[in-house]
Write a protein that binds this DNA or RNA. Structure first.
Lengths: 114, 114
DNA sequence: ATCTCATTTCGATTTTTCTAAAAATGAGAT
DNA sequence: ATCTCATTTTTAGAAAAATCGAAATGAGAT
């Protein structure tokens, strides 16, 4: 992942509505959710939601698909995973553990198996 | 982690210089780097760098410590890890795998062991 | 006590982002 | 072919963030 696209992805997530929206889709799974359903769940006007969805989409974090009258959005899990991998890449200067979480250990495993 | 602090952390990372800076510190490990060294490595004026460092610091992503004449910055790994955990929390609607990366699997493990 | 140097704060400007009403689009239903 | 409804685009204004030179701070060194 290049730095530029990581910044675009992080900018897409760095906003209250969009972060809530993305997490909603992440937790919704492959089935996704219709734009209208999301707007209602988040209490955001449709035009505002569309603006935010477009940003997540152009960052590559969510995918779009028409289904009957609605447009279904779902999380792009591979994109999410590579953003996370980019953030923690080569962490801790090669130390075994960053001190707390699983994320850095996962990065260690990635590195060893790659 | 609350939504608000996740947005603050993501905003802190959603900027070219700050993302580069954070990754520099993540990879530098517990030893950290002096502000001046960072400024030179990134080619950013000292005053601009200080502005960006302050944001990463107020987001809790980096820690500060004086050492002789310099001020040393280092990554806050636990903060990094909990941000990542928040992003991928309960992903895939309980499915075994999100399709690609290790991050979601790590989240699965977390959930099972918690 | 003073000097020096690394870093931060101030200030003014420019750029970017958020918001949401109103108009436009476009796919399916009648 | 037209109607309807979900969603997007446009638009304009308001709010927030980035930039960086110059001045201020503050801890060590002399």
């Amino acid at each position: 992942m290049r730095s530029e696209s990581a910044v675009i992805s992080l900018s897409a997530l760095a906003q209250e509505h969009r972060l809530g929206l993305f997490r909603l889709l992440v937790q919704a799974g492959e089935g996704g959710l219709a734009a209208g359903v999301i707007a209602e769940k988040l209490g955001v006007p449709a035009s505002s939601l569309s603006f935010h969805l477009a940003q997540l989409r152009s960052a590559g974090l969510v995918l779009q698909e028409r289904q009957h009258r609605s447009i279904i959005y779902r999380a792009n899990y591979p994109a999410m995973n590579s953003l996370v991998a980019y953030l923690i890449e080569n962490c801790c200067a090669g130390a075994a553990d960053c001190g707390a979480g699983a994320a850095c250990e996962a990065s260690e495993q990635e590195r060893k198996s790659a």
